[in-house]
Design a protein around this nucleic acid. Structure first.
Length: 477
RNA sequence: GGCGCCGUAGCCAAGUGGUAAGGCAGAGGCCUGCAAAGCCUUUAUUCCCCGGUUCGAAUCCGGGCGGCGCCUCCA
């Protein structure tokens, strides 16, 4: 079995093989840091994380880079309104986005380059494109990419370049361009740009880089001229990624990206999520409402990444319960006392089957919904086996633990949920004392007292489970 | 107008030619002092509708209906 990924370039799922195994060079278009990121952004980030973790799980050495766009029209507008320099304006958003990513169990990237750190490189690129006749300066000091000079323009999106000429959304203000389809590599500074610190010296006068340019320059600076995988939201296919290809290959003459992977946009409560509808939800808001991070992460991976995902509050509640089931299962295994010499159960073979199905699911274009199903089938089967078997040996217990922990290295749900259930030592000690007191009350048949203690613990989010081995308490979110 | 996606139980969502995964929610039961957790049974004779192909279709084809995305800076 090999991993197959849907490559937008080929419009088909094709076997993935890195150019230089075991290294995988992977780049993702990150957010523009002019606001807090919404759950739609995080669907993409979670998918990036899922792919990265799965590649690592398969044994690849993944080098992952995600940019943060810290200069563009929206950044400049926001900074101007706030009366701040763009760096002051964007820094808190960048920090918040990375903090929330960490909260959702997203592994940190190897680098988070920002456009303002690569101005020199971008100027150099524009210069080289100009040398090759692929760029030209307009009278106002802006520089444009000449699409007519790049014959495969439009291939990624499958667009006919000629059809773009009459596009209704072509900006009528850009009369300086030779061709309406040409896009800006370098934008001449407007007065407001300089006010917020978004104007740099260049051979064409004061200006700032165009948005598309940064991803080409930064990804190649970090990872080399040919990337194995380039990720982004589906909206970026055109024009952003199309432009990246044109710029990059225009300069290097090498294939820029081998696999283009695009994440479908989610919808929110059955509706398109957009700022104009005013229905965006940020991860920050959900966390403030008390939604646990693992539930958000679970819901974001509950549909395969190229499918529409309907993100709902009801779904979050379901995800929270599903995550709790995984946590309970893991705890059951950890707390299980193995019996030496006990007969083998079906657990080891169930683990093999589950891992096989899990892997087949993810190999199939990262089908996370199917992978989750494999895990939950495993949970049910092992629970049933443990209910049936009088005793379990250490090998079977370990096989089950190894299996769920292995799958969770990709999913990142159990570890995240467990981290969210950690309690302070003094709370744990208090809970232990209360459980001991309740045990005594139960022995004395003082069930009123026992139930009162249980209620008291419940008020603090601690739930009791009585069993033959004794009583345990757990944190529920 | 061009290109493309989707429509599966109360909700979310796999399956894409061989007789409907999984999670949540609901019902009944076992276990329990009562719970919790877990297990068992149950909840779509059917996959938007109508035709067609096939021994056989949720899966392929045609036509509808409905929802959605992109077509120059939105993950």
């Amino acid at each position: 079995m090999t991993l197959r990924l849907y490559n937008t370039l080929q419009r088909a799922a094709v076997p993935f093989e890195p150019l230089d195994p075991p290294t995988v060079r992977m780049y993702a278009c990150g957010p523009t840091i002019y606001d807090f990121a919404h759950v739609g952004n995080y669907r993409s980030f979670v998918v990036y994380d899922l792919l990265r973790r799965y590649l690592m799980w398969l044994g690849y050495d993944v080098r992952f880079v995600m940019n943060l766009t810290d200069v563009d029209d929206k950044v400049i507008d926001g900074a101007a309104k706030a009366g701040l320099d763009i760096r002051e304006f964007t820094a808190p958003f960048g920090e918040a986005i990375l903090r929330d990513a960490e909260t959702l169990g997203i592994l940190p990237a190897d680098a988070y380059p920002m456009a303002t750190q690569h101005i020199e490189g971008m100027v150099e690129w524009v210069r080289r494109l100009e040398e090759k006749g692929l760029a030209y300066a307009a009278d106002d000091g802006s520089v444009y990419f000449r699409i007519a000079g790049f014959e495969t323009y439009g291939d990624l999106k499958g667009l006919d370049p000629d059809s773009l000429k009459t596009g209704a959304r072509v900006d009528v203000d850009e009369y300086e361009k030779d061709d309406a389809r040409d896009f800006a590599l370098w934008k001449a500074a407007k007065p407001v740009d300089a006010e917020v610190g978004a104007a740099w010296d260049s051979p064409w006068g004061k200006g700032r880089p165009g948005w598309h340019l940064e991803c080409s320059v930064m990804s190649i600076a970090e990872l080399g001229e040919t990337l194995d995988i380039h990720l982004g939201g589906e909206d970026l296919i055109f024009p952003h990624h199309e432009n990246e290809i044109a710029q990059s290959e225009g300069v290097t003459g090498q294939p820029f990206v081998r696999f283009w992977v695009h994440v479908k946009h989610l919808i929110l409560e059955g509706e398109k999520m957009s700022k104009s509808l005013g229905n965006t939800v940020t991860v920050r808001e959900l966390l403030d409402e008390g939604v646990e991070p693992a539930a958000i992460r679970h819901e974001l991976m509950s549909a395969q990444y190229r499918r529409e995902l309907n993100f709902t509050r009801e779904g979050l509640a379901a995800s929270s319960a599903a995550v709790q089931r995984l946590v309970d299962f893991h705890a059951r295994l950890e707390e299980l006392t193995p019996t030496e010499g006990a007969d083998d159960t079906r657990v080891a073979s169930l683990a093999d089957a589950a891992l096989g199905r899990f892997r087949a699911a993810l190999d199939d274009d990262l089908n996370s919904a199917e992978a989750l199903a494999a895990l939950f089938v495993f949970v049910k089967e092992v629970n049933a086996e443990l209910d049936t078997a009088a005793q379990v040996n250490a090998g079977d217990r370990q096989a089950a633990l190894d299996a769920i922990e292995s799958m969770d290295r990709v999913l990142g749900l159990v570890s995240l949920a467990q981290a969210g259930r950690a309690v302070d030592d003094d709370v744990a000690a208090w809970a232990d004392d209360m459980v001991a007191e309740r045990d005594q009350a139960r022995k004395d048949k003082d069930f009123a007292r026992a139930d009162a203690i249980r209620d008291e613990l419940a008020a603090k989010g601690l739930v009791l489970e009585d069993s033959a081995e004794g009583t345990r308490w757990k944190v529920v979110r």
